[in-house]
Design a protein around this nucleic acid. Structure first.
Length: 534
RNA sequence: GCCCCUGUAGUUCAACGGACAGAAUGGCUCCCUUCUAAGGAGCAGAUCCAAGUUCGAUUCUUGGCAGGGGCGCCA
């Protein structure tokens, strides 16, 4: 919230449209926030940055009496801002009053966070209709760890976009027809020894169990299993979009082909039909997956009118991104409305060594297996902790560990501690006939650890705003950890419940409950539970 | 051959083109046992290489090197 306020004040002074940054600072010597406004302006005008900074500082002078303690010019010409104690306390009280409102939707993460405003180019963003398609694993086998990574990411992203007021649809696209389903059928026959085994066939125990089933029956069974796994993982979907039922049987592929043809975009070559350099109808007259995908996105953008479609794909689909973007452009939809997130692969490590996995050979760690071993909370934390771009190592041993070493337990432990303090105070006030002794007076908060904690709490809206803009969800677990750490620092140094000082006790209890609430919101956006006792 | 991602402390990861590159864990040195107990303080420790753009580059550009993944009618 302070970041936006500072930006607003600087914008009043600098020329319109000037691009500059306002950032939070973790280094206390650099203040709470800093701006490079003077540096960028000086560069533009060929002036001395320190002089420009001095001019801006002078123009901002009235801020200092309001909610900024001091503004300093530092380094090459940065403007550093120190937020005043009064402003921290006032904003904490606003934060507590506004708080979050639980939406009508069931389940964790379904919050409406009223204090978050998302801005793009300085303009308040309006609510959008957003489709998030994720997991979408073919119903030809159990979900893998990699599916879990995409699943948790999509789930958390949906939670966040929903929390700030967008209308979000969580969607799973089921490839329940076509080549891979045919392969599944043949794999079952091969596993039963009825036909010859081939490299491209699915293997593993689950294929053997499907003995005697047709391809369609098997796909239906496997989809059922996938749904069960997702439920265990706490990943929810609003729409299960079937390629077979929703596209093929309704003739959508032909329709979209006709549409593209009418725009003269389809060419024939080597007996196949092409959209630019991609085949849409094979020479054997079968439609390609690409054509189905075009029809699917026609449905998303034109029929269902989503403003934005976010697709979370595995790294093995990266080569498909350009084609898909060009494809929807051919449909007359701006490619900006399709955002594709590529999740890099996951390696599982144990004892410092990689655990080898091979899907083809049927030896891979299923999501079910992982959840059984490490639990949903740890799995979610470990996957969400890393940026989608990293080829991450999942440390199996650490995820299982129930100690401070394991960050998810450290954070959960902090909330349990908050709870314990609150419980203790309730027990005391119940004993005393006059009920709660003290009166809340936020002005009593003055210790550095208390103020650091307030600052940390008030950062949450900014973190969520950042994620809403760049989809970098790993900021959330980092923030949760920092908040838990800041609380623990406070806890180590100051006693909350003190019968000799009822007013301070009451005030600190409020701070503890604000901390607990803030961690809880953060964790629930990630789909992680906050136990009240550990 | 072409395309995508990555290369940062011993390890796993951070860092809108900004200040002294942050954490965690491991290592070393002290301290402590508290509303919850799975502790606290300190120290040491890193940007793959080479050019370029810039007042300023881990970040951008180009060229290497290394790892992971993909690629022409599979999905």
């Amino acid at each position: 919230m302070f970041r936006a306020l500072i930006r607003k004040e600087i914008e009043k002074i600098v020329p319109k449209g000037a691009v500059f940054s306002v950032e939070r600072q973790e280094n206390p010597e650099h203040g709470d926030y800093s701006s490079n406004a003077a540096l960028v302006l000086a560069k533009k005008d060929g002036k001395n940055p320190k002089e420009v900074a001095a001019e801006i500082k002078k123009a901002l002078g009235n801020l200092v009496s309001k909610w900024v303690d001091k503004i300093e010019i530092a380094g090459p010409g940065f403007l550093n801002f120190w937020i005043s104690r009064g402003a921290l306390i006032e904003n904490l009280s606003i934060f507590l009053r506004k708080g979050e409102r639980f939406s009508k939707r069931e389940g964790v993460g379904a919050h409406r966070l009223r204090w978050v405003k998302t801005e793009r180019n300085g303009k308040r963003e309006t609510s959008k209709k957003i489709n998030i398609e994720f997991v979408s694993a073919n119903p030809t086998g159990p979900l893998t760890m990699a599916n879990g990574r995409g699943g948790f990411y999509g789930d958390a992203l949906a939670n966040i976009l929903e929390a700030i007021g967008h209308e979000v649809t969580r969607e799973y696209y089921i490839n329940d027809t076509g080549n891979q389903i045919k392969l599944l059928g043949e794999s079952i026959l091969a596993a039963a020894g009825k036909i010859e085994q081939k490299d491209e066939y699915y293997k593993g125990a689950y294929v053997k169990k499907l003995k005697g089933k047709t391809a369609k029956q098997a796909a239906a069974i496997l989809l059922g299993e996938i749904k069960k796994s997702l439920k265990k993982a706490g990943i929810k979907f609003d729409v299960w979009f079937s390629e077979d039922k929703n596209l093929r049987k309704t003739g959508e592929l032909e329709k979209v082909l006709k549409f593209l043809n009418s725009k003269k975009l389809i060419k024939e070559k080597e007996g196949a039909l092409w959209l630019r350099d991609a085949v849409v109808i094979k020479s054997n007259k079968e439609p390609t997956y690409f054509l189905a995908d075009l029809a699917y996105h026609y449905d998303k953008f034109i029929k269902r009118k989503f403003d934005l479609a976010i697709n979370v794909w595995g790294a093995d689909h990266h080569g498909y991104v350009e084609r898909m973007k060009k494809g929807i452009e051919a449909l007359g939809v701006s490619p900006d409305r399709l955002k594709i997130i590529i999740m890099q692969l996951v390696r599982l490590t144990s004892g410092g060594k990689e655990v080898k996995m091979s899907k083809r050979a049927g030896e891979f760690v299923t999501l079910d297996n992982l959840l059984k071993k490490v639990g949903v909370d740890a799995a979610r934390w470990f996957f969400l902790e890393r940026s989608p771009d990293t080829h991450m190592d999942f440390d199996f041993d650490l995820a299982k560990e129930r100690s401070k070493k394991n960050p998810v337990y450290y954070v959960q432990y902090a909330t349990a501690r908050c709870n314990s303090i609150l419980r203790k105070s309730e027990a005391r006030s119940a004993k005393s006939e006059r009920g709660k002794g003290g009166e809340v007076n936020l002005q009593l908060l003055s210790k550095p650890e208390e103020l650091s904690l307030i600052k940390k709490i008030l950062q949450l809206p900014e973190i969520i705003e950042d994620i809403a803009n760049d989809y970098q969800i790993h900021r959330l677990p980092r923030y949760a950890y920092e908040l838990a750490k800041t609380f623990t620092d406070f806890y180590e140094k100051h006693r909350v419940v003190d019968s000799k000082n009822p007013d301070l006790t009451a005030t600190r209890l409020l701070l503890v409950s604000a901390t607990q609430k803030t961690i809880k919101i953060t964790l629930s956006l990630m789909g992680i539970d906050t136990p009240s006792r550990m």
